[in-house]
């Protein structure tokens, strides 16, 4: 996983709530067997509308997505995270994320930041009025900064440490292999097995 420390970039204000993962990446894109090449599928249906915010020339190269509440609901597809990253987003800000999407994002180094809706609203107004306005997401200080906006955000120490260091979860878990083996030795014999017995 790529480390995330601090990021500054222009924003895409997405004034929509309940953006489900079928909108972020439609199902027909999920047939790919790689983690890359999803950028053209990002918000595919909405991008057919020339007025859609992602299609505006001044939003090209933006790396911070500022979205409405309940972002990433629905399917567990991690492809939604890959599509956002493949497109160029480094971070997504919203007042509420769906749990599975949030977990997926943090495992890939896409920092999802939970902010109060009034802060989201302020960031929407700022970046709608001035598309060149930059937003800084500082994981070291756990703070989001933009012109006229300074907001702290929460992320638990463990998740923050893994992101700052870009650590691989599997390697971390395998440091405790002995504890896994000890647990396995105590599992009851009635637990199901998938192999024919």
């Amino acid at each position: 996983m790529e480390a995330f420390t601090t990021h500054t970039g222009r924003a895409v204000p997405l004034r929509r709530g309940n953006v489900d993962t079928d909108q972020i990446i439609p199902a027909h894109w999920l047939k790919k067997v790689t983690r890359n090449g999803f950028e053209d599928g990002l918000f595919e249906a909405w991008r057919k509308d020339p007025q859609f915010v992602l299609n505006q020339p001044e939003r090209q190269g933006a790396t911070v997505l500022v979205a409405g509440p309940d972002f990433g609901t629905g399917s567990s597809r991690e492809h939604a995270v890959w599509a956002l990253q493949n497109y160029g987003f480094a971070t997504v800000l919203s007042s509420r994320f769906a749990d599975i999407f949030r977990g997926n994002s943090l495992k890939n180094g896409l920092l999802t930041v939970v902010l109060p809706q009034d802060v989201i609203e302020a960031l929407w107004k700022l970046t709608e009025a001035d598309p060149t306005a930059e937003i800084t997401v500082d994981l070291v200080a756990r703070e989001v900064r933009a012109e006229g906006v300074t907001a702290s955000f929460e992320l638990d120490d463990n998740a923050r440490w893994r992101l700052l260091e870009g650590l691989d979860d599997i390697s971390l878990t395998l440091r405790h292999e002995e504890e896994i083996a000890a647990y396995e030795a105590e599992r009851p014999s009635y637990k199901p097995r998938t192999v024919e017995v």
């Binding site: 567990s76 991690e78 997926n104 495992k107």
Partner: peptide, 10 residues
């Protein structure tokens, strides 16, 4: 629980 692909690998 439903999980993502990184967790499937895990």
């Amino acid at each position: 629980f439903g999980i993502g692909t990184s967790q499937v690998e895990h």
